[in-house]
C-alpha cells in the first residue's frame, strides 16, 4: 500500500457530495417523481455549462465528451421536456455520451491534479524539520525558450495540472485546489496561492502557500519540499520539450 503524504479529502468535498445525495433522495421520497426529476436535471445542467466553458478556456477536446453528457442527461429529466416525446432523443444521446464520459472519468482525463502534484513534490522529501516561510524559493536557472514555456503552460492547463497566468516577462503556474475558481476568474491573485514561476530568462522559482503546506500530514522540511516541487516542474518541462508528455500524465496517474 502506498503511503500518502497528503491528508485525506477535505470535509468540504465530502459535505457537498453528501448534500447532493440527500437532495436527490429527499426529492424522490418527499416530493415525488417530478421533484426528483427537477433535482436530477438541475444538478446536471450547471455542469454542462461549466464543462463547456472549461472547453472554451482549455480547448481540451475531452470536454466535448463530458459537456454533451451533462447537457443531455439534464434535458432528459427536465420536467417540461420530460413530458415531450423529444426527451427520448435526449435520453438516447445521453446514453451515447455516457460511454466516453465514464471512460474520461476512469482515465482521470478531467481530474484536477492538485493532490497528485503535491504528493509527487513531497515524494523525495524525507525530513520533517518544518521551516515554513511565505517567501518564494529560487530554484535556479534553466535553458528555456519563451515559446517552449508558453506551450508548456498551455499543456499544464489543458491537463488541469496548473493554471497559467501569462505576463510579459514570465508565466506563473498556479497549482490551485479548486481549478474552476481560476477558470471562471473568481480568483486572480496568485500571491497567496502555491505557484511555480518560469521567467523568460530561464529563472525558476517556487512558492508553496500555507494552505498547501498544511495539507501535508507532516511538517516536511520546507526548503527540500520547495526544491522538489521546482525539480518536478523542471523535469516535466524537459519531458514536454522532448514531446514525452504522456510520461507526465502516467506519473500523475500512477500516484
Amino acid at each position: 500500500m502506498k503511503t500518502r503524504k497528503i491528508k485525506t479529502m477535505s470535509l468540504g468535498l465530502i459535505a457537498i457530495t453528501v448534500i447532493l445525495v440527500i437532495l436527490l433522495l429527499s426529492g424522490r421520497t418527499l416530493g415525488g417523481e417530478e421533484i426528483f426529476h427537477w433535482v436530477l436535471s438541475l444538478a446536471n445542467l450547471p455542469f454542462a455549462f461549466i464543462h463547456f466553458f472549461v472547453w472554451l478556456r482549455t480547448r481540451n477536446p475531452v470536454y466535448l465528451m463530458t459537456f454533451p453528457y451533462y447537457l443531455f442527461i439534464g434535458l432528459t429529466f427536465l420536467p417540461p421536456v420530460h413530458k415531450l416525446k423529444v426527451h427520448l432523443v435526449f435520453a438516447i444521446l445521453a446514453a451515447l455520451f455516457m460511454v466516453p464520459f465514464f471512460v474520461t472519468l476512469i482515465k482521470k482525463k478531467i481530474n484536477w491534479r492538485y493532490r497528485e502534484v503535491l504528493e509527487l513534490a513531497a515524494k523525495p522529501v524525507e525530513g520533517k524539520a518544518d521551516g515554513f516561510t511565505n517567501r518564494p524559493y529560487p530554484a535556479g536557472n534553466i535553458d528555456a525558450a519563451e515559446e517552449d514555456i508558453r506551450q508548456y503552460s498551455h499543456f499544464l492547463f489543458r491537463e488541469m495540472i496548473a493554471y497559467p497566468l501569462v505576463e510579459k516577462e514570465r508565466i506563473i503556474l498556479v497549482i490551485p485546489k479548486n481549478m474552476w475558481s481560476w477558470i471562471f476568474f473568481v480568483k486572480k491573485d496568485y500571491s497567496k496561492a502555491t505557484h511555480v514561476i518560469f521567467e523568460n530568462s530561464g529563472n525558476v522559482s517556487v512558492k508553496i502557500a500555507e494552505d498547501e503546506y498544511k495539507a501535508y500530514k507532516d511538517e516536511l522540511t520546507f526548503d527540500h519540499l520547495c526544491s522538489s516541487m521546482a525539480d518536478l516542474f523542471i523535469k516535466w518541462f524537459e519531458l514536454f520539450k522532448k514531446k514525452e508528455d504522456e510520461k507526465i500524465i502516467k506519473e500523475l496517474n500512477d500516484i
Binding site: 525530513g127 524539520a129 518544518d130 521551516g131 515554513f132 516561510t133 517567501r135 518564494p136 524559493y137 529560487p138 522559482s205 522540511t221 520546507f222 526548503d223 527540500h224 520547495c226
Partner: peptide, 8 residues
C-alpha cells in the same frame, strides 16, 4: 529573495 530558508 535569495536568503536561505529556515531549514537551509
Amino acid at each position: 529573495f535569495h536568503l536561505p530558508f529556515p531549514t537551509g
